[in-house]
Amino acid sequence: MTSRVEHTDVGAYALGILEEPDRTAFSDHLATCRSCAAELQELSGVAGALAGVGPLDDERDDAGGGSGDRGPAEVVNLLRRRKAADRRARRGTFVIGAAAAVTLVAGGIAVGTSISGENGSGSVPVGHSAHGPAEDAYRAGTPVAGAGAPGVTGGLVLETKGWGTHAALELRGVKGPLECELVAVSRTGERRVVTGWAVPERGYGVPGSPEPLYVHGGVAWERPGIDRFEVRTSGGDTLLTVTV
């Protein structure tokens, strides 16, 4: 994708495996393509590299082939196939409880995206919400307010999971074009990216575009070990700090 943008590259963008020229081109594309922006939000948990999510079996595994030689394109395709299968399995039901995951064996990390609550009380009724999973998670919890740059406000809702900590972010007062990341900072100073996204020129939570941004992701640390979360731009500016 060196000279043109493909809609199907949203998975590769979410996994961070596009080369720099392609990543920049696709970031610009997100500002005008609602379908890609919506799919990117669905895949936002991928960037968090959630621990404890097991590998997926596919036809190659069943045939005796190992998963260690999967290339990036195969990983993206496998993620898409599993998500499509999960959506088909949910049709006609009232419970979201599926999870999509892939294992990048060559890199030694597990990457996944969760679309269920895993909060001990069950799941989210599909027919009862007009919002996305990030906004649902934020509205269902008790937000921790953050300290923002001038004009920027927001907060986080945190959930303890078996694999670590899930974070749902609300962000207001940002205009683009920007690339941002939600970064977790441990009490020992270690940093982990929870999720990343692009802010279109119109922005979020600003005059003319009043709706806030909602994104979510996960980090493989238990909540007591986390000092704070930061929303940072690709240029190194901190837009929001949430001390937990």
Rank of each mutant, 00 (worst) to 15 (best):
G141C: 09
D237W: 00
S114M: 14
K83R: 15
A12M: 11
R172W: 08
V5W: 09
Y204K: 10
A98T: 15
C36N: 09
L40S: 09
G45M: 01
G120R: 01
I226R: 01
T24Q: 14
G218N: 13
T93Q: 12
R172F: 05
G45L: 11
T142M: 03
L239I: 02
V231Y: 04
L239H: 09
G155I: 06
C33T: 03
T188R: 14
G54I: 05
E159G: 08
G120Q: 06
K175Q: 10
G189R: 07
G52M: 12
G97C: 06
A85E: 03
A25L: 12
G235W: 05
V244K: 06
Q41K: 14
D227H: 07
R34H: 11
G162K: 13
T153Y: 03
V53Q: 13
L213Q: 14
T103N: 11
E135C: 06
L43K: 02
A99H: 04
G127C: 02
I17E: 04
V95W: 07
H166L: 08
P210R: 06
E19T: 11
R91V: 14
D69Y: 13
C33K: 08
S129D: 13
E159S: 08
W221E: 10
G68S: 11
V215S: 00
L79N: 12
A12D: 07
K83D: 10
G205A: 06
G154T: 00
A147Y: 08
V244E: 05
T195K: 02
V75C: 08
V76E: 01
G235L: 02
D227N: 04
G52F: 10
E179M: 10
P125K: 03
D227R: 15
P55Y: 03
V183A: 05
A137W: 13
P143C: 10
G117S: 09
A73Y: 04
T160E: 15
L158Q: 02
A100L: 07
A110Q: 12
R172Q: 13
P72I: 03
T243N: 09
P177W: 07
R91A: 14
G120E: 05
R81C: 07
G235D: 10
G16A: 01
C36S: 08
V219M: 01
A137S: 11
D136V: 10
A51M: 09
V157A: 05
Y138E: 13
L78P: 00
E42G: 14
D86M: 00
R228L: 02
A51K: 09
T243R: 06
S67M: 02
A14C: 02
G92P: 03
G154Y: 00
F94N: 15
L78T: 05
P212A: 00
G54Y: 04
E211H: 10
V75A: 06
A137F: 06
E211L: 08
G173V: 07
T153A: 11
V144Q: 10
